[in-house]
Simulated scan of single mutants.
Amino acid sequence: MDREKISRLAHTDHPVNSPLDDESVRRLLQRTLNRGDERILDLGCGEAAWLLRALTAHPNVTAEGVDSSAQVLAKAREEAAGLGVGQRLVLHQRNATDFTSPRPFDAVLSVGATHAFGGLLPTLDAAHSHLAPGGRVLVGDAYWECEPSAAAREMLGEYEDLATTMDRVVAHGWTPVFGHISTRQELDDFEWCYTGSLATWALDHPEDPDSAEVLAAAATHRSQWLHGYRDSFGFLTLVLGRTPE
């Protein structure tokens, strides 16, 4: 079965595709949208969970989201219509790396999608290309809380520790104005929701031809998490302004 279906099922109970609870999302958006009338962009928006929260909290905000998946964008449009914010949301089906706009944005978001650009710093470069002067970037990415195993590095990629990650961001021309380090509860809740949503669907649909594969995917992910990276994986979300040159 395709990976997109696995991903869609896995995020049923945790629509924000990052280890952040609702209060953390609210606080990060509040620090990013300090006027309340911003024009915002989410690169790799998925089901547009961040944008929908911003639009419902701020009636004068307008938003655009970019994602390559037609299915998740269709779900986002449906939810936006149900929330009454569809008129203020524009969604683009394309690779985030290919997106262009004739106008800059007051805020650019990319949380949990840095892989699309090849890492944190290239993501910040992409965000900067869409950012209006004085705007804010909200970005989230992984870091290593302690030295990972070789298997964890191979599985998840090359990250740095927290201090080195921050040093690299600052050296790249950005000033942090707010940040959030995901708690152990947020990290574990995200993984339990991921594996639990898959397992629940498989157990509730035993007649589906994909059921066994989905259940196996839940078991594999749970094993990789518990035996591979749980003790070393961390997640950092930053609100950044561009450092004056």
Score class of each variant (00 low, 15 high):
R3N: 07
R8C: 04
A10N: 02
T12I: 13
T12F: 13
D13V: 07
D13E: 06
S18F: 03
D22L: 15
Q30K: 14
E38N: 08
D42C: 15
L43A: 02
A48S: 15
P59D: 14
E64F: 10
G65L: 03
D67P: 00
Q71G: 11
Q71E: 10
A76P: 00
A76F: 05
E78G: 15
G86T: 05
Q87S: 09
Q87I: 09
S101F: 13
D106H: 15
V108Y: 11
S110D: 00
V111N: 04
L120D: 01
P122Y: 00
A127S: 09
A127T: 02
G135I: 09
G135N: 03
V139K: 00
G140A: 10
Y143R: 15
A151L: 11
A152N: 12
R153Q: 09
L156N: 08
M166A: 07
D167H: 12
R168H: 06
V170L: 12
W174H: 12
T175K: 14
P176Y: 11
F178M: 05
H180P: 03
I181R: 13
Q185V: 08
D188I: 06
E191N: 09
W192Q: 13
W192R: 12
C193Y: 05
T195A: 13
G196C: 11
G196T: 14
A199F: 01
T200P: 02
T200S: 13
A202M: 04
D210R: 07
A212T: 05
A218N: 04
A219F: 02
Q224R: 11
W225Q: 13
Y229G: 05
D231G: 06
F233S: 02
L236H: 06
L240E: 05
